[in-house]
Simulated assay, not measured.
Amino acid sequence: MPALNFSSFKITYSNGKTDNLTTDALKTGNITILPNVTLTLVPAADSTCTTSGNSEYYEGSNGKYYSKSGDTYTEIDENSWMIPATGVHTYDDSSPMWTWIRKGDSYDVTVKFKCKDCGDIETPDEQPTLNVVDNGGFRTFTATVTYNDIEYKSTKSEETCINITVNGTEKQYRYGVQVKAVAQVPAGKYFEGWYETGTENKVSGSETYCFYATRDMSIEARYTDDQVAAEPVLTMNLSNRQALANGKNKVSFTYDWELPEGCTFQSAAIIRSYVIDEPTISTMDTNVHYTALTTARGTYKINLTIGAANADKAVYVRGYIKYKDKNGSHEAYTDVFTSASLN
């Protein structure tokens, strides 16, 4: 019987690859000749908390099962490819189900976790902690919870609502919105000014007072029997104070000024000091922050970042304005506004 020339034979694998069938391959055992069997690949599948998985294997048309290593197929026992279910729920970043319920000026926050594989829902024993950061007009609420040694967060941002009361009527405004208060002067009376309710702090000498909502405030119009001489009105307020993540502190001040008719605005500034309780433009140990505004009526806000070394000190701040009228140039200051120790 003539010898077979194996080099003229081809073998085709289930993946479509074709090789020469050589006597060397037969001698070395690098290839196994199977009966006329069709092999169907069963891909590997991960197990989940409730379902088993499997490693990759092949189903043969002869009712047997095979694994493959390189180009070699080896018969294996039925179900030897099985990987048991883990019995452990799996959560990803989309798994936490957060619930935010408004409670006064803050929120009650709860969280549940839904397994991404089986859909089971669990509630952790630990309740989320809530951190609030005021960014001067916006507040950011961050809820944090640690579950199965993994930290999850949910964030909600909202504009700060400012409560403004004008002549006893309170309204809410978004931070930074302009508010317009118009005095209704009774017959036979003269307008004296807008004052912070119940105080002698005059905030405007104009019947129509336009200002910006940067803090909660209550104002009232006052009237007098005698005509009031026009004069500049300067006010300053602490609009925000917060601790920063880097250990520093931020203090925000707003300064409002209003010049009567006949006055020309020249410059305005905010002056602050840690050691001088009556800082002025020319005082040593002060910092002067000039505004970029050049109007007879304006609101200027400044953020002062206080380093850790100065966090236990009070900050003395006041507003400054220079203006001109028919009698020449004048300078005026607000009362000193003190930010207490930040620690």
Rank of each mutant, 00 (worst) to 15 (best):
D77T: 13
R102G: 01
Y91R: 06
W100P: 12
E75F: 03
S94E: 11
G87R: 04
H89G: 01
E78P: 04
E78A: 10
D93E: 14
W100C: 08
Y73T: 01
S94K: 12
G104D: 15
A85K: 12
K103S: 15
Y73N: 05
P96M: 02
I83K: 15
D92P: 00
S80I: 09
D93A: 15
V88I: 15
I83N: 03
S106L: 09
D92E: 05
D105P: 02
P96V: 11
W81N: 01
W100H: 08
T74I: 12
E75Q: 14
G87H: 03
P96S: 07
M82A: 08
T86W: 05
T74L: 07
G104S: 10
E75K: 10
N79F: 07
D105G: 07
T99P: 10
D92Q: 03
N79E: 13
T90N: 10
D77S: 13
P84N: 02
N79G: 02
I76N: 07
G87L: 07
K103W: 05
G87S: 07
E75C: 10
P84T: 00
G87Q: 05
T86N: 01
T74A: 14
P84C: 00
K103C: 08
D105H: 10
D92K: 01
W100I: 12
P96H: 03
P96R: 01
S95W: 14
P96F: 06
S80Y: 07
M82I: 15
V88L: 04
K103P: 09
Y91H: 04
A85C: 04
D92H: 05
N79A: 09
M97T: 14
D77R: 11
W81H: 04
Y91N: 04
T86S: 13
I83P: 06
G104F: 07
S95G: 07
M82Q: 14
Y73V: 04
S95H: 12
D92M: 05
T90C: 02
D93C: 08
I76G: 04
